[in-house]
Structures are given as structure tokens and as C-alpha cells.
Design a protein around this nucleic acid. Structure first.
Lengths: 156, 156
DNA sequence: ACCAGTTCGTCAAGGAGCTTGACTTTGTCC
DNA sequence: GGACAAAGTCAAGCTCCTTGACGAACTGGT
């Protein structure tokens, strides 16, 4: 039993820590740029929704399921997006309980703008790290998420 | 003006999204393993603190600064760690306003245990992705955090 | 046609994890 | 000794999530 061997630097620079820090900084950078532009009230929680919005429409419960959160969590966020005229709620013609959340033309433009912002950040990093390095990072992270998600299923 | 060009897949698999998802899954995997062991009440916020704790002692305000949060945020977290006997608060002999937060022997063991858990996860990934790939991922992420942190300073 | 069970979305309450502001105590500098 | 800064706590509030309960509406069996 010799516990005092506490390797500070090891833990601080562990893959998990670095991964978390990178993700946080990346998101903050993206959000800062978008907030500086046309969407000052956009919060991080809203951005999580964007990849799943379509012009053809989605149910809010489906959005909740894809995000892995409760239905109650997405409600207020969608309210915000409706208030900003980025999406609209229309009654589902096949189910009167449900409403379908659909991107407005303005919402479509917002998504494109978001992609431009993300593209700018990625371009900055690409310039500094090099193309090969960034593409490899992207590919490795994709593999990693698949492996970790698989582990989730096993133990959940 | 042709907004309907909304590339779903592009946004969903963007570097930012993948990075965020990987970080979340990684942290969840680590926390799940630790909670299954000897620390069922450990929350994610606590783990953020560990890399900065030492046996020689640190001020809570210094911990707050390193984590990038307010002093008020770390207080209750340290209270928990004290309650679990992982750290102890001792009065700073050079400044009676301040208390110094110091790892107990048990806290040192907890850190070592945490490193073992992180090492296991990393070993699993290393087995699946290969040594070169994982080392390169680690190195690239380190570069990336440095670049993004630098950008923070500029605009903050 | 009816009733049971499920699902859609919302209201209400609460917890976690942060924030800012105000404050006491103590240290530092002139 | 007196102005100012810093350490840490208390209080209030915000964001983002949770579970529980609910009315309305759909589905399937009888």
C-alpha cells in the first residue's frame, strides 16, 4: 500500500480530460461566433436540436428520443425556435394529438449559416493542423463514438 | 436565395458534433465504472476536480480558477469530498482567510483507482483502434485544445 | 360500439450545476 | 492606520435536465 504515488500530469492530460476539454472549447467557439451574429439569444441546448430538424417535419417526441432526453426537455427549446420563426408547429394530419415541427425558410437559412460557422472553425483548425491530421481525427473520433456507444448498449 | 439545401448528414457528422458525442460517451463510461465501484455518489462535477488535487494542498480559489468556474461553484463539491474523507481542509498557515485543500491517503488511493479505470477504458480503445491511432488522437486533441484556448484569449 | 392500454404533448415540482451580487474576515501596500 | 484587494460564504436566480401526473387522442380486442 503506497498511495502517495499521485501522477498529476498523467491524469490531467489523460485522453478523457483532453477529449472533454476539446469538445467544450469547440462548442464555445461555435456558439460565440453564432451569438455574435444574428442569434444572440441562441443557447447551447438549441444547437443540439438543429442536426435533427428538417423541412419535411418531425414530431417533438421523435426529437426527444434522438437527443436521448425527455419530451419535456425539448418543449421549451422548440418554443424558443418557434418564437424566432426558425421552425413552425403544424398539426399532424394523421394524429390530432401530435404536432409536427418543421423548419421555416428562415430556419433553413439559419442551418446553412450554422454550417458556414462550423466550416470556418474547421478550416482554421485545418490550416493549423494540416488536412491529413484533421481528417484522421474526424475518422478516429467516429470510430471511437461507435465503440463507446456499443459499450453503452451492453451495460444499459 | 435557395435555402432548401439543408444537408442533414453533413451537420450531424460534423467535427463538432462528433467531438461532443465522443466526449460525452467517454465521460459516461468512466463515471459508470467508478459509480459501480466504491463511489456510487460521485458525480461528474466531482471528477473535474480530481486532476487538480494534490497531497501538498491547494486553495479552493486556485481550484476554481483552474477549472474556469467561480469560487462558489467549487465550495459544495469540496464539501462532498471532505464528507467522503477524500480531502481535508487545513488552515493556510500563511493566510488565515484561506484554507488549503489536501488529499487524504484515502483520496490518493481514489485518484489511483480513477487512473486505473481511465486506463482500462483507454486500453479497450487501444485494442480496437490500434496504438498508433490512439496516440495520434491524443496528440491531435492536445494541439486542438491549445489552438482553441488561444482563440478564447483573443476574443475574451 | 365500447373499453383498456398506449402515446402525444403539457403542467408542475425538483435537483444539479453553474452564475452574479453582497458580505465578513484577513492580508497588503503606501 | 487607512484604502484597497483577496479568501471564502450566503443568498438568489438561471439553465437544463429529471420524474410524476394529467387530458386528449389513437389502437386493438371483444
Amino acid at each position: 500500500m503506497s498511495p502517495p504515488a499521485v501522477p498529476d500530469a498523467t491524469l490531467r492530460a489523460s485522453l478523457g480530460q483532453v477529449l472533454f476539454r476539446a469538445a467544450r472549447l469547440y462548442n464555445e467557439a461555435a456558439l460565440r461566433r453564432v451569438q455574435a451574429g444574428a442569434a444572440p439569444d441562441l443557447r447551447f441546448a438549441h444547437t443540439q436540436l438543429f442536426p435533427h430538424l428538417t423541412t419535411s417535419g418531425t414530431r417533438s417526441s421523435a426529437l426527444a428520443k434522438r437527443l436521448g432526453v425527455s419530451k419535456q426537455a425539448v418543449g421549451p427549446l422548440l418554443d424558443d425556435l418557434v418564437a424566432w420563426a426558425l421552425v413552425e408547429r403544424v398539426v399532424d394530419p394523421t394524429d390530432r394529438r401530435a404536432s409536427i415541427v418543421r423548419l421555416t425558410p428562415r430556419g433553413g437559412e439559419a442551418i446553412v449559416h450554422g454550417l458556414v460557422v462550423l466550416g470556418e472553425i474547421e478550416a482554421d483548425l485545418r490550416r493549423e493542423l494540416g488536412h491529413g491530421e484533421l481528417d484522421r481525427l474526424h475518422a478516429t473520433l467516429l470510430q471511437l463514438t461507435e465503440l463507446l456507444a456499443r459499450g453503452d448498449d451492453r451495460s444499459g
